[in-house]
């Protein structure tokens, strides 16, 4: 990976992250976050770790960010839903992330078109096979521990979510009194989809 390619991706990653933090619009912040993750995956790719680069795209930019965006968009449903939906993705929100993503795409094509993996200090590419053998060989316990970690997260999320439904009157009172745009919770969204059907 040559220096120019690295610095371009690195600058995009830092800039996109800053924009994601500074942005006031949740959807726009998430789009910038996705761009930042794509930039990091380009750096991985350039340093001879295509498998990690692919994982970064699939897991972070793919599933997690898409999940975030769906949740944010769903939370925006409610009385002002139609209005909100129009305002959700006007061009000025997606144009910035789109430009950065286009730059990354150009860089990706450039890197992929170079015949040999560039003269990176990081030696041979790490194959998925090697990753799998390490994970299920010496680091098997790590995989098991991760599963316990996920179990804790799942149980915790379940418990905190349960409580919200157990005291609906408190919850609704709060959200309707502070009627900020997008403040209506999933319940309002349920009503709306029933009407649409």
């Amino acid at each position: 990976m040559n220096a120019l390619a690295f610095y371009l991706a690195a600058v995009i990653a830092v800039a996109a992250t800053l924009l994601a933090i500074a942005g006031k619009n949740a959807v726009q912040s998430l789009l910038y976050l996705a761009v930042s993750l794509l930039a990091v995956s380009i750096i991985f790719f350039g340093y001879g770790a295509p498998f990690i680069a692919a994982l970064e795209v699939i897991i972070y930019a793919g599933s997690i960010i898409v999940l975030f965006i769906f949740v944010v968009m769903m939370l925006n449903l409610g009385r002002r839903a139609a209005q909100a939906e129009e305002q959700l993705l006007p061009p000025h929100i997606w144009i910035g992330p789109a430009i950065l993503a286009a730059l990354l795409a150009v860089e990706m094509i450039y890197l992929a078109s170079m015949a040999a993996p560039a003269a990176a200090p990081a030696q041979a590419a790490v194959s998925p096979r090697a990753v799998g053998l390490a994970l299920y060989g010496p680091y098997l316990l790590g995989v098991e521990l991760s599963s316990m970690l996920l179990l804790a997260a799942l149980v915790g999320a379940y418990h905190l979510g349960w409580r919200r439904q157990a005291f609906p009157e408190v919850k609704d009172g709060e959200s309707s009194s502070s009627a900020a745009p997008g403040g209506d919770s999933l319940r309002a969204g349920g009503r709306r989809s029933a009407g649409a059907a």
């Binding site: 316990l141 521990l145 991760s146 970690l149 804790a152 915790g156 999320a157 418990h159 905190l160």
Partner: peptide
């Protein structure tokens, strides 16, 4: 690796606790 996993198991459980 085990340091970080152990630490996160504590942290993630503690958020909910």
């Amino acid at each position: 690796a085990s340091f970080f996993l152990g630490l996160e198991m504590m942290s993630v459980s503690l958020y909910a606790m």
